[in-house]
Nucleic acid binder design. Sequence first.
RNA 1: GCGGUAUUGGUGAAGUUUGGUUAACACACCGGAUUGUGGUUCCGGCACGCGUGGGUUCGAGUCCCACAUACCGCCCCA
Length: 428
Amino acid sequence: MRYQRPKGTADILPGDSQHWQYVESVARQVFSKYRFEEIRTPLFENFEVFSRTSGDTSDIVTKEMYDFKDKGDRHISLRPEGTAGVVRAFVENKLYGPEVQKPFKTYYMGQMYRYERPQSGRQREFHQIGVEAFGSDEPALDVEVIAMGMDLFKHFGISNLRLAINTLGDKETRDNYRQALIDYLEPHFDELSKDSQVRLHKNPLRVLDSKDEEDQKFVANAPSILDYLTADAKQHFERVKQLLDALGIDYVVDSTMVRGLDYYNHTIFEVMVNSKALGHGYTTVCAGGRYNGLVKELGGPEVSGVGFGLGMERLLLLMESEGVEFPEEHHLDAYVVGISDAADTVTLKVVQALRQQDFSADRDYLARKPKAQFKTADRLNAAYTLTIGEAEIAVSTIHVKNMVSGNEVSAPLNDVINDFAGVIKGID
RNA sequence: GCGGUAUUGGUGAAGUUUGGUUAACACACCGGAUUGUGGUUCCGGCACGCGUGGGUUCGAGUCCCACAUACCGCCCCA
């Protein structure tokens, strides 16, 4: 019986892992410019951390969460998303305290788990990069987060982006709008798709998101949430738009955009891209928004937050299909060819000496013939091939060849061991 | 959770329509072409075997069933 990795998981192998590292390092650099700092929270939390924040009836809680009882009978959940854990840490460590600069800006990257049917770019274990900023209601912070998201994609080398924004307003706005939407859709109940019929009372906003063509006809004429904004909500949203304009960031307002998680309010946004890699038309690669009230929900004070998250797997698919060039990482400075058993010891010493001088170096470990070793040096794209055999050992020298120019010299063994940089300077 | 398609070596795969006896071809890899210098060329090697387990049959990679996994669509999410 052969072992297989669990359904919906992936091995990220060398070659691929370079791409991951590149994306992560670009993200760290960008975040650092905006003064966001990394936070690392547990991969699992108490079940309630997620059920409280995502909504008890949300699908993510009722059927997509990996949850279990541990040996101490604690109800544990693998994190299905990043925000809840960060908020929990924010509260538990009292990062809302006076000694912490506001807003508190942080980012995370790591595994998330959802029990769902795997598809391309959607796995049960997947990875997200996300940011959160706590402690300011100012629209300027919403805009900083959005601007940073757009900046991030620019650094990833992705263009053809579309920024869609909307507002869910405050609680009063949502309550009023929810009722208006129900009032509008109720008369058409029988004409709605089955899924939407269920959604109508459970979460009517989600009807707006329906992919059913029939539903879309009703949605087109549905009341807009923008007409139900309270004065405060409207002012917040207007300011966000003004600031985006001021920064020259293009956007479209999509009043039908909604969120699957219950904790969002006010500004929500999605970065969308038109790429065949992720399906037809514009699809979302990054989503975020404001979540005032979430901190309080988890036992903290009334502190607001805003953030976004993006899926690594989808991002990498996108970058690969857009032909983004990843930096070549596997440079090999020197390959040391040892001829005959007599050379084994000295070959190892040379390789190790080169590494001590900060050169990357490698050698053969299969006792292969010179011919095969030279082939390997070539295939590994070594900048220099060093050769040492009985003839060299006898007079304490080593042969050094520049693989690009073909120039070669015989150098004193000690020079290579102590100052390889000086030796190669003499060749080129 | 529902529906569809697929699963052959390290890789890409032919073969499955019309079940028949040695699983094509290519790439990669390994070895060799007179002794210690590469990228070309030539020669040779490389599936106890067709996802797993059952079944039908004189005979199955080719037919049937179950399971697993991947991909696509739905739910969901983004």
